[in-house]
Computed example of a mutant assay.
Amino acid sequence: MEDFKNRIDPDGWVRLVFSAKAARTGGVVRRSAKWVEREVGRKKFEAEVRKRGFHMIECGGQLIVICNKGGLRVVC
């Protein structure tokens, strides 16, 4: 059985993700789509990414957030 006592609240989880050094310095944050759904919900996470002006892509069950407000060009 899952231990719910050690889980952080959804807003705290989002703050934790976006306070990571990679997020603060314009890098990349990667999280499992299943984990995001379980911790905060996909809609909330996507809204948080949009609110920050970042970009998010999904590949192989992973959500990759590019923590940069610059333009995005997919090369291949």
Rank of each mutant, 00 (worst) to 15 (best):
M1N: 13
M1Y: 10
D3A: 09
F4I: 12
F4E: 11
K5L: 03
N6E: 11
N6S: 15
R7K: 08
R7W: 08
R7M: 06
I8K: 14
I8A: 02
D9L: 00
D9I: 08
D9A: 00
P10R: 04
P10A: 02
W13H: 06
W13G: 02
W13C: 09
R15H: 05
R15D: 02
V17P: 01
V17E: 00
F18K: 01
S19Q: 04
S19V: 06
A20Y: 07
K21V: 12
A22G: 03
A22H: 08
A22M: 09
A23E: 05
T25P: 03
T25C: 00
T25M: 08
G26N: 13
G27V: 12
G27Q: 10
G27N: 10
V29N: 03
R31D: 05
R31E: 08
R31Q: 09
R31N: 07
A33L: 11
K34T: 15
W35P: 01
V36W: 07
V36M: 07
V36G: 11
V36P: 14
V36Y: 09
V36K: 08
V36R: 05
E37C: 11
R38D: 07
E39N: 03
E39K: 04
V40I: 15
G41K: 02
G41Y: 06
R42Y: 03
R42L: 06
R42G: 01
K43W: 05
K43I: 13
K43F: 01
K44I: 09
E46S: 05
E46N: 05
A47D: 15
V49I: 13
K51C: 02
K51Y: 02
K51P: 06
R52H: 11
G53W: 03
G53F: 05
G53T: 14
G53C: 03
F54N: 00
F54L: 03
H55E: 07
H55Q: 02
M56T: 08
I57F: 07
I57W: 04
I57K: 04
I57V: 15
E58G: 00
C59R: 11
G60Q: 10
G60P: 12
G61M: 06
G61Y: 05
L63T: 03
I64M: 08
I64H: 10
V65E: 12
V65F: 05
V65M: 00
V65R: 01
I66G: 03
N68G: 02
N68H: 12
N68S: 06
N68R: 06
K69A: 03
G70Q: 11
G71E: 15
L72Q: 12
L72T: 14
R73D: 14
V74A: 09
V74W: 13
V75T: 15
V75H: 08
V75I: 15
V75A: 05
C76W: 13
